[in-house]
Write a protein that binds this DNA or RNA. Structure first.
Ligand SMILES: NC(=O)c1ccc[n+]([C@@H]2O[C@H](COP(=O)([O-])OP(=O)(O)OC[C@H]3O[C@@H](n4cnc5c(N)ncnc54)[C@H](O)[C@@H]3O)[C@@H](O)[C@H]2O)c1
Ligand SMILES: NC(=O)c1ccc[n+]([C@@H]2O[C@H](COP(=O)([O-])OP(=O)(O)OC[C@H]3O[C@@H](n4cnc5c(N)ncnc54)[C@H](O)[C@@H]3O)[C@@H](O)[C@H]2O)c1
Lengths: 185, 185
DNA sequence: GCGGGCTTGTGAATGATTTCACAAGGTAAC
DNA sequence: GTTACCTTGTGAAATCATTCACAAGCCCGC
């Protein structure tokens, strides 16, 4: 941020909107990265965290559903920049299959299982309507995917060995709605 | 779900992936909605919660940034279905200004302040590049918006009276990355 | 090499959240 | 009406998370 070589827990806390003690406790979970009296070396901390988070390497991603949000995700530079590479996009709509999104061709969802066996993607993004989401999750899990990020606004279940996270934007708006109704109390 | 008239805390918990005690404690924060021995009336609970969350009414939303994610959000039916209406979309790119997204015309970001004063939207969605996000947040706050949902992967600050929530998809992927690296330990 | 000034790493204290457990109250069958 | 059975609502206990506070360690100037 300032081009400093080193940064203190207090400065990190200010940037992240938390407290210095919190930053130190969190980092101490992984080990001791700081130097007393000085703080943390920005470059050493950054590379240690990248290592710990598994960001040194490339992760391959498939996107299921090439609609509005699926297309936006497929073309999102923020993923590529961070080492997440879209290796496949799938849809059931013949009008979308065969189209191209940021260099990746949209393929028929019937190819999903065989492609996953072949490409061995690490992560699947689920961007289909809520009604179809569980079915697609079951299919990618069966084909071997162990990490899923879901955008459909519906609860999903996965086996224990699979990590599932969900982004629920409508819920976010409902939380804002509640905050607005209860503002100034 | 089953067409039941009534539902127990245990069934709600199973659906939401939590525990029955948790459901009852959470609901008790707002009042007593259940009948002992029977559970909760689905319709009464649903309308009470809609009331409490402020979902009876329509909330007007402006979207700042008509790029890939902004366009997807502008056309997202899930928002309209839940009473969130997109009343304006803004961009700085002349190639996008004047275009139409789901019936809403994209307007020049220079009109942002005057439009907000006029339309009085309740919520702003920020879908511009990270570098521009804080500036746009400051502008919509100054113009009177009290609730913001941010999609740019950057920390933002707002005055205390304003509610800010952020959706950080790259962070979600990093969490999955960490889970994959530490799988089976 | 020594002392002053900073900042880490971490136990202990405090605060928040979740889980437990059960009395109170309701249903329904007979 | 009585009994057998459920489920809520909620204090108390247990767990989890944050904040406090400070000894230990490191840098730097002298
Ligand atoms: N658009 C948004 O901004 C947005 C935001 C948050 C969440 N979501 C959620 O993301 C999901 C997709 O939303 P969208 O707006 O992109 O809708 P969309 O209708 O534009 O896209 C859905 C796509 O999924 C495809 N599809 C349907 N069934 C399929 C199947 N079995 N296999 C493969 N593909 C299938 C459809 O052909 C379509 O292309 C929905 O669950 C929605 O609630 C969307
Ligand atoms: N595409 C995705 O799936 C995705 C997912 C998560 C987060 N995001 C984030 O959302 C933001 C937008 O991403 P995108 O992929 O839509 O990028 P994009 O480049 O497609 O869109 C950004 C838009 O913002 C406009 N813009 C730039 N400065 C502006 C200003 N001062 N006023 C008004 N408009 C302005 C640009 O003209 C462009 O149309 C980024 O911060 C990105 O990190 C995108």
């Amino acid at each position: 941020m300032h081009g400093h070589q080193t940064i203190s827990s207090g400065e990190l806390a200010a940037q992240g909107g938390t407290t210095s003690a919190q930053v130190r406790k969190d980092l101490s979970f992984f080990g001791s990265f700081g130097k007393r009296g000085l703080g943390y070396s920005v470059s050493a901390l950054s590379s240690s965290l990248r290592e710990i988070l598994g960001l040194g390497r490339q992760w391959n991603v498939v996107i299921v559903g090439a609609g509005k949000i699926g297309a936006a995700l497929a073309q999102y530079e923020g993923f590529r920049d961070r080492g997440f590479k879209v290796v496949g996009v799938y849809d059931e709509d013949p009008a979308r299959v065969g189209g191209t999104l940021d260099g990746v061709v949209v393929r028929d969802q019937r190819e999903l299982e065989s492609d996953i066996m072949k490409l061995k993607p690490h992560i699947a993004l689920i961007a289909v309507p809520a009604e179809a989401a569980q079915t697609l999750v079951d299919r990618v899990v069966k084909a071997g995917v162990r990490a899923i990020l879901n955008f459909a606004p519906t609860p999903l279940t996965v086996p224990e060995k699979v990590t599932l996270r969900s982004v629920n934007m409508a819920l976010e708006l409902e939380i804002l709605s509640y905050a607005l109704v209860n503002a100034g109390e």
